[in-house]
Amino acid sequence: MKILVLAKHVPDTETVIKISGGGKTIDESDFKYMVNPCDEYAMEEAIRTQDKHKGESVVVSVGPARAQETIRKALAMGLDRGVWINTEGYSGGLDSYSVALAISKVVAEEKPDVIFAGLNTIDEGAGNVGPMVAEFAGMPSLVNISKLEWQNEGKSVRAERDVESGIVEIYEAKTPLLIAPHQNLNDPRFPSLPGIMKAKKKPIAEKKAADLITDKPKVEVRTYKLPPEKAPGKIFKGKPVEEMVTEVVKLLRSEAKVI
């Protein structure tokens, strides 16, 4: 089985966002980066799937040089090789369409049976790229999957998708397909020391985003802004609970008007 994983190197969860250039850019000078948390579930599921069905696993990441750190982590966890789509030297906007278009070229070349993608990223947060890549490749996308059973020697799956309010849709789908797991599907492993050592020797192929993105972006960003500072709230303490709660409920009606 050929398995592809989509992963992104993203600013750390704790990152403080500063806007510069009169609202035109985000000041990334103090950023620290990490593997996008949702993508670790995709990596783990790829390794487990390969353990069962053999074959090869490949991780793809789009970004500047630092994106290779996310690829290395995936390789240290156990994936076989990486493809880095280098965005350095690409001057166009990187909307989800452009990123998905670039990845779709790699998908066309690699012809995977299954693609695992993170549900969402913590920077842009749209969750567009996985379904878009699947659409480019003409394969179904099963998103927010909490349970996965391979059937028919890896030719099809039965997957549970958590929708909302406890509603679960159970899908049967044939490969090739894309799966975006949610955090209940597995528990991502930490790379072992031998894993980290081995990863250093695993190959990462470089592709240029400028060669793969053969169309203009469809969405352009005009400005960035920070949310308005919230006025400090009213904190009640040191009084009888009864008194504090009834006071807050009164304010919820009279002042906040939310109930």
Partner: peptide
């Protein structure tokens, strides 16, 4: 079509415009 889209876990927002 222009839109306001939260990003970075709601720590900032972008104004994005459709070019299609």
């Amino acid at each position: 079509v222009v839109s306001d889209i939260p990003m970075y876990l709601g720590k900032c927002a972008k104004q994005a415009v459709s070019a299609a």
